[in-house]
Write a protein that binds this DNA or RNA. Sequence first.
DNA 1: GGAAGACATTGATGAATGTAAATATTTACG
DNA 2: CGTAAATATTTACATTCATCAATGTCTTCC
Lengths: 116, 116
Amino acid sequence: MSLELTPVQAVACCAPLAREPLSESDAEGIAPLLKALADPVRLRLMSLVASHQGGEACVCDLNDAFELSQPTISHHLKILHEAGLLDREKRGVWVYYRARTGALRNLAALIGGQAA
Amino acid sequence: MSLELTPVQAVACCAPLAREPLSESDAEGIAPLLKALADPVRLRLMSLVASHQGGEACVCDLNDAFELSQPTISHHLKILHEAGLLDREKRGVWVYYRARTGALRNLAALIGGQAA
DNA sequence: GGAAGACATTGATGAATGTAAATATTTACG
DNA sequence: CGTAAATATTTACATTCATCAATGTCTTCC
């Protein structure tokens, strides 16, 4: 176990935005998660994976959904994976990504949670 | 009324990420909202305003919460305002910002909404 | 009207970001 | 083994971004 929190661990640590002021360190932990989501391509990638049958999708399927180069899609997937929003599993030649729905729920609770 | 949607209007338009694949145009409408939130300073600003008594806060209070120049805070507030996350009202010499909690709730529903 | 205070805008700069081309790595299959 | 296919990494580049210093605008009060 590491002392460094992944962004996804960081988001489970604090009260909703509207409940009490976010601390500086908490904000610095959470911002990378939002930054990972704050791109149209990555938003669609997350949605494609999360809504895909079985909760996972193969990179081969994802590449075809965009008019972007394969390295670019790979780059975006890496960012989502390193943020902790996507799990990665290699099966044979193919790589499957799976959405961490718990992370999405925690993030949603932080953003939209009740004030009191 | 304009044909151009503000980011905050754009977020009310679609099913949760995990329910069905986000369209390209929807993703391009929502990403700016997340980008506006995806900064530690702006996250804290949103939280400070949203959790402040009365749901609003004066810029004078906000400036003191950071070790950043006044123009920098003004810049971040403008970004949050243009994204539609903060309302702006001038009263005398002071300017008050108010959190659009509905926008935050819509965004949370989009991110963390049930798959089915 | 002039000075002071609150906030916004402009201009400049270094850092981070999205993308693609080229290349590398890994796996399967003959 | 050697070739093909799937995915990742490296390198390079143009764009965007966060920040500050300087300046501008607007309001209040003397």
